[in-house]
Amino acid sequence: MAGAARFDLAVPPGGYAWWYLDALSDDGRHALALIAFVGSVFSPWYAAARRRGVASADPRCHVAVNVALYGPGLHRWTMTERGADRLQRDARTLCIGPSTLAWHDGRLQVELDEWAAPWPARVRGRLVLEPLASTGANFALDAAGQHRWTPLAPSARIEVDLDRPGWRWRGQAYLDGNHGARPLEQDFVRWDWSRAALPGGATGVHYDVQRRDGSTLGLALRIADDGAIESVAAPPLQPLPASLWRVPGMVRADAGHRPALQRRLENGPFYARSLVETRWRGEPVTAVHESLSLDRFAARWVQALLPFRMPRRG
């Protein structure tokens, strides 16, 4: 098990580690995203602890499992923050409250038992992710290497069996990891990220970062079905419609092609997640896309809203 696939990464005060997966059902009707945080970077409680002093902001006291479900007539969001006494982890297993992520025989098994917010609804059941392509490579997102990203399993299959809300489906999935030694808002203004399955089993990933020091980073990667990573020429950035909260977004698309917003999955005051129809290197793709504004996240009016979606227990 290499690099950020381990759940026992050291996380310094004020820092973070998270493991992210998303999935689309084979019939195109359902989607989900899951993020497990040690040092919940978007938590208003952790942000307040950092304002009191980064050196004393313990990431183990701010852990959460965020689950977002998207289906016909259904949208559920969980992100209950918990304290250090509800965290257990080693290299292969991460337990946060009643939910667990664990590696078994090369597959990631996720046992969920969470409550949605702000309207209470249960999210309970199992996800099993089987990587088809794995990598151990990691990429620095800032010049000093304080923030790193790893495309752990850019191509994967998933089995979803949730008795709440009664979902059973299979589909295509993606898994990555991020970890850092400093708060995101300290070093970044915003970013746009997208990934898409390509013909032949490869995966394309674009990561466009605007740093706090005024510099930028643009990663354009093609990850083959054997995990080999190739840097490729990035197509031009094209604008997306602003979200409900007026969060701007940009996505990569071949010159002369106008990307189309297929479905807005998530609308938040500082974050948007979408499915986008676009074209990369001559291939039509459906990309999972996110736009993140750290300036928005740091705004006090946004911080005041977040506890309604991110309650804390313990």
Rank of each mutant, 00 (worst) to 15 (best):
V189R: 11
P183M: 01
G227V: 02
W245E: 01
Q210E: 14
D225N: 14
R182F: 06
A242W: 10
R190T: 10
P236V: 03
G214M: 09
V205N: 00
F188R: 04
G204S: 12
G204V: 11
P235F: 06
G177R: 14
R222C: 14
E266I: 14
Q262M: 09
A253K: 14
G200V: 03
Q238F: 01
V209M: 08
A253Y: 02
D213P: 02
G200S: 06
L221T: 07
Y207T: 00
G256Y: 03
H179W: 15
L244F: 12
R263I: 01
L198Q: 13
R212F: 03
A228M: 13
R258H: 11
L240N: 05
R263F: 08
R190D: 09
G256C: 03
L244G: 12
D226Y: 01
A173E: 08
A181R: 15
G200T: 04
Y207W: 15
D213K: 04
G256S: 04
D176K: 11
R246Q: 14
P183T: 04
I223N: 00
Q186A: 15
R264E: 08
D213R: 02
G218R: 15
V189P: 02
D208F: 04
P235K: 12
D254W: 05
R263T: 09
W191M: 05
F188L: 13
W191C: 04
F188M: 02
L221H: 09
G201S: 09
V205W: 00
H206D: 13
L198C: 09
A197Q: 13
V189A: 13
L221N: 01
H206W: 12
G177V: 07
A220Q: 07
S215H: 11
Q238Y: 05
G171F: 01
D213E: 09
L265H: 13
Y207H: 12
L261N: 06
T203S: 13
E266A: 13
R258G: 10
P199L: 10
Q262T: 09
R246Y: 05
P248E: 08
A233T: 14
Q210M: 05
A255T: 13
E266W: 15
I223Y: 03
Q186M: 10
H179I: 06
L244C: 12
D226Q: 00
L175M: 11
R195F: 06
R252F: 01
V189N: 04
Q172I: 05
L184C: 08
R222H: 14
W245D: 07
W169N: 08
R211S: 00
V205H: 00
L240M: 15
V251G: 01
A173G: 12
G249S: 06
W191Y: 11
E185I: 00
V189Q: 12
A234R: 08
G204L: 06
T216A: 15
